[in-house]
Nucleic acid binder design. Sequence first.
DNA 1: GACCTGACTCAAC
DNA 2: AGTTGAGCCAGGT
Length: 93
Amino acid sequence: MIFRNKVLDIVKKIPKGKILTYKKVSELAGFPRAWRAVGNVLSKNRNLKIPCHRVIKSNGKIGGFNLGIKKKIALLMREGVKIENKRVIFQDV
DNA sequence: GACCTGACTCAAC
DNA sequence: AGTTGAGCCAGGT
């Protein structure tokens, strides 16, 4: 299981209404310092099977998504995620 | 195989 | 509070 696969797998495992940051994903992947690679892998792979819209930046802002950040926000809200002024209110539970 | 890039993050200014 | 710089990792070219 390579880093890229782990990242994709973790992101795929993100439950509905749950939000993870790139850093969190990297930690879960086993590479707490590979956050750059996380976003990079997602972008290079941009696998639509992966809810990349559930992956946001540490500051809560949506990163850069191919489909459009606004759409991600709307989608996240529809999934039960709270959004406030382009900010994802993700509780680190 | 080396260099560059990127959907990032932290810290300082 | 916003912007800039430096740091880090893997993937892609």
